[in-house]
């Protein structure tokens, strides 16, 4: 949730409410044009890299257009003919040229994708975008997932596996790489690929691509689950604390991270008297109530927490 707010752009000055906001690229600042308050400084320029350190790079950089992205099969470098029948001045194209434009558009579309490999890549990346949108994943994770998928293609790992399955596990891996792990069930629900297949493909890909991913820790799930349960920040902090202690006591070994996170949230919610039922927590975390009961008994016993219910 926190990430999403930061991604959104500031459109209003928090001081005077003016919508006249100036972006100063020289200084990397976001300034209100009316009252002069500096809303944000040390901004990162997300634009393309224009610096060149030798002449070859200089030539390569001398281009126009949007920055290249891995999420498009042609890295966003090819031309598209717009669907509107308007020329570059915004005037509509005379009807005697309409048919010509239609043909041009058709052939442009056909030529863009040159062979089967590229067609598959285009399909896979659009599928990746679809699933990522369904999960509400940000840009950087999509790029990472596209990178992993392209690596898998280059190493010929797709053969014998479904494109959808590899796409889903690329996303799963990307989420973990960016430290915002989704559960296999979440990915599976968004992608129409079974949890089992995603897991299997994921394990295969980590082995073949040498993705060095640490096992997910329960802490990574706490804030997401808690905010879905509409719990306060105090409860989240409490949940983190419980898991930290559990980690030190080494009782997380061999336990599913989602179950641990769910139990910690459950205990924390009771301690801060924002009680959620086991059922509610279980639904959000995608584990069973029995798991929560077992884990929370273990946790309460080991950490010496007394819970009156």
């Amino acid at each position: 949730m926190v990430d999403k707010v930061q991604v959104e752009e500031v459109t209003k000055c928090p001081e005077c409410g003016s919508e006249h906001i100036i972006r100063d690229y020289e200084r990397g600042e976001l300034v209100c044009g009316d009252c002069g308050v500096v809303i944000n400084d040390l901004q990162i320029d997300m634009g393309p890299e224009w610096r060149a350190f030798d002449s070859a790079q200089g030539e390569a950089r001398a281009r126009t257009g949007s920055p290249i992205t891995l999420t498009r099969h042609d890295k966003g470098l090819s031309t598209e003919i717009g669907w509107k029948n308007k020329d570059s001045y915004g005037k509509s194209i005379p009807s005697r040229n309409r048919a010509q434009m239609y043909r041009l558009r058709k052939w442009q579309r056909r030529i863009r994708v040159s062979n089967a490999t590229e067609r598959n890549l285009a399909f896979a990346l659009s599928e990746l975008d679809r699933v990522a949108s369904g999960l509400g994943l940000p840009r950087n994770i999509r790029e990472t997932a596209a990178m992993i998928y392209r690596n898998a293609v280059n190493k010929n790992l797709i053969r014998g596996r479904s494109i959808e399955g590899v796409v889903a596990s690329s996303l799963y891996a990307a989420c973990r790489q960016c430290n915002v792990p989704r559960t296999l069930d979440e990915i599976s629900a968004a992608s129409r690929v079974s949890r089992k297949e995603i897991g299997r493909t994921y394990r295969f890909m980590t082995r073949e691509l040498n993705l060095k991913l640490m096992p997910t820790s329960p802490q990574d799930y706490v804030s997401r689950f808690a905010s879905e349960l509409k719990l306060s920040g105090e409860t989240i902090t409490k949940g983190y604390e419980i898991l930290k202690q559990a980690d030190q006591l080494e009782i997380t070994s061999g336990r599913g991270p989602t179950g641990m996170a769910a139990a910690a949230i459950y205990i924390a919610s009771i301690m801060t008297s924002e009680r959620r039922t086991q059922r509610e927590v279980a639904d959000v975390a995608g584990v069973t109530e029995v798991t929560i009961r077992n884990r929370y008994k273990e946790l309460a016993e080991q950490l010496g927490i007394d819970l009156e219910i």
Binding site: G199, R203, T206, N210, K212, P215, G254, G256
Partner: peptide
């Protein structure tokens, strides 16, 4: 003796070891 699978997975490197508690409790 109880094993801490997490630290085993981290210190033994990820070439020969595979530990996905979400999918299977064993290493």
């Amino acid at each position: 003796k109880e094993l801490n699978l997490n630290s085993i997975a981290i210190s033994l490197g990820l070439e020969k070891v595979e530990y996905e508690p979400e999918q299977f409790p064993g290493l």
